[in-house]
């Protein structure tokens, strides 16, 4: 624990506010992972931590190091940019994979594929595969 003794109070209050607010928002998002009922509803929960929770905690970190080293420390921007660009990509891929699996199983809860080439072509499980009688290659 090497916190500076002469750290200004106004900055300490701001850092505490940012860090506590961000972690509280992240906790709410992760609670959503437990409370929401279906998979597609649950995909909305992690974005809370990945947008505002991440943003406020990184703000707090940048402010703390800038005041501590008395020079602007802004390399936290890099983490923010990476997370902002990557989290939507992973969530989209994951939701599309789940949609594909649900359609392959014929689940009534998801909208059906509108065009033939979107519809799942390849059966997933071994039982399905034996029904379709793929020709041996």
């Amino acid at each position: 624990m090497t916190l500076a003794h002469d750290f200004p109070v106004w900055a300490a209050i701001l850092v505490a506010f940012f860090v506590l607010g961000g972690s509280a928002i992240t906790l709410v998002g992760s609670l959503g992972l437990l409370r929401l009922g279906t998979f597609y509803a649950r995909t909305h929960a992690p974005t809370l931590g990945a947008t505002m929770g991440m943003g406020t905690i990184l703000c707090g970190s940048a402010l703390y190091f800038s005041v501590l080293e008395t020079r602007p420390v802004v390399h936290e921007v890099l983490i923010a940019v990476f997370i902002t660009l990557t989290t939507p990509v992973t969530l989209m891929l994951l939701a599309r994979a789940a949609l594909y699996r649900d359609r392959a199983e014929g689940s009534p809860d998801v909208p059906a594929a509108e065009r033939m080439e979107e519809a799942p072509q390849r059966p997933e499980s071994a039982e399905n595969r034996s029904e379709h009688e793929e020709p041996a290659r």
Partner: peptide
């Protein structure tokens, strides 16, 4: 647009049909 929609909590982009 897909990044904006997905990173806004509460909405998620699933599929874009280029033909329609």
């Amino acid at each position: 647009l897909s990044i904006i929609i997905t990173s806004t909590p509460g909405t998620i982009w699933l599929n874009y049909d280029a033909a329609k």
